[in-house]
Design a protein around this nucleic acid. Structure first.
Lengths: 150, 150
DNA sequence: CGGACATTCTTGACTGATTCCAGATAACCG
DNA sequence: CGGTTATCTGGAATCAGTCAAGAATGTCCG
């Protein structure tokens, strides 16, 4: 778990100004992997007191643009943010409860980056989303196919 | 291109009632691959006259549940629908203009379905989204890294 | 063919996430 | 320390999608 000083270094390293909200957001994303925006806002406010949601949205966008955090948008869910950047990893999303888990790339750094026919596109990234049931839901809800979206 | 009679057969085969809006929506999705909801609404209205957006949303959900159409939600875009179902294919999304193209699975029916560590999840599907630049954007905007979201 | 029933469509309002805007504030550099 | 500039605040607006109640329509069975 990085310290506040680490976060400040990360911000400076990305040519971003060091502000209280930015450090708090960065810290919140590190502390709560795959958190949605409202959770991050709550965590930041818990840390700093009142902070406008606009500031959090803006900070998240700045951090995303600087590759300090990554934004994932699972279907049927709101945007979520995570701090693991740089490595090529993917996600499992539970169909029932919406839980998200990290999955390291199965074979090598980027195995899926070479589709059979790229239609002339210049591909620079492949994102894989696995859908299924998390351990909890697969045991408790095996029979009742409740499709509740979180 | 299937005919209206084909669409009716598909609906009946899925135990769905055959109504004008449903046939029109199904036809629109077949005619406009990767169309977003508002485009589908426009196409349906062009065909039938006034149709409520609620009806289209409802029909799309019913068709999705019946596996007659598939819903894809690229990050930074609204939900889109396509008629190719049953085969395991993926998508390329252009970072610049948002264009979407189909990509058949590179190797075999479902190569990415086996991550290194599934965290106890029961995985039943893997969806791959390639990000990059479409042929048009890669030639016109190679130097200017405009990141406009569509 | 015709009527009963359940499903589906219409209308209209509403939520919730995200964005836009203008002005106040705070961080950085010299 | 002071000026410049990016950032934050607060409020309003937008947009996709959802909810709910009543009217209309398709399907099934006699």
């Amino acid at each position: 778990m990085p310290t506040t000083a680490d976060f400040e270094r990360m911000l400076r390293g990305a040519a971003l100004r060091v502000t209280r909200p930015r450090v708090a957001v960065l810290s919140a994303v590190h502390a709560h992997p795959h958190a949605d925006t409202s959770s991050i806002i709550a965590a930041v406010r818990d840390d700093l007191g009142e902070v406008s949601h606009q500031a959090v949205y803006d900070v998240l966008r700045a951090l995303t643009a600087a590759d300090l955090v990554r934004c994932i948008e699972p279907p049927g869910s709101v945007a979520r943010y995570e701090a693991r950047v740089g490595d090529n990893h993917h996600h499992i999303v539970c169909r029932s409860c919406g839980a998200i888990a990290d999955v390291d790339c199965a074979v090598g750094p980027a195995p899926c980056l070479t589709p059979s026919d790229d239609h002339g596109f210049t591909i620079d990234e492949a994102e894989v989303v696995y859908r299924g049931l998390c351990p909890t839901c697969s045991t408790t809800a095996t029979d009742s196919r409740k499709d509740s979206r979180v």
